[in-house]
Amino acid sequence: MITLFIVVLGIIMIMAALMAIYQKNLLSAIVASGVISLLASVIYILLAAPDVAMTEAAIGSGLTTIVFLYTLNKINKIKAKK
């Protein structure tokens, strides 16, 4: 049962990785890479590593996504000014 759960999570993570790499819209690509980190934190719980899961949930899906979005916003602003 747990194995099935992990397989489903893994398939979603691989699809999200492919989407993050091949999606033309950068915003969607950034959100997809955040989804990978969020699901990875669920897997860390299943691997009995709650410390790592907390870090990954807060950093991988929260702060990393925000830093990417700030960058995208900044680049769009420079583009608009040009």
Binding site: I21, L26, I36, G60
Partner: peptide, 11 residues
């Protein structure tokens, strides 16, 4: 795209 390369790094 450089942003895409950095996304690849984080994956």
């Amino acid at each position: 795209n450089i942003i895409k390369i950095i996304i690849g790094f984080s994956i």
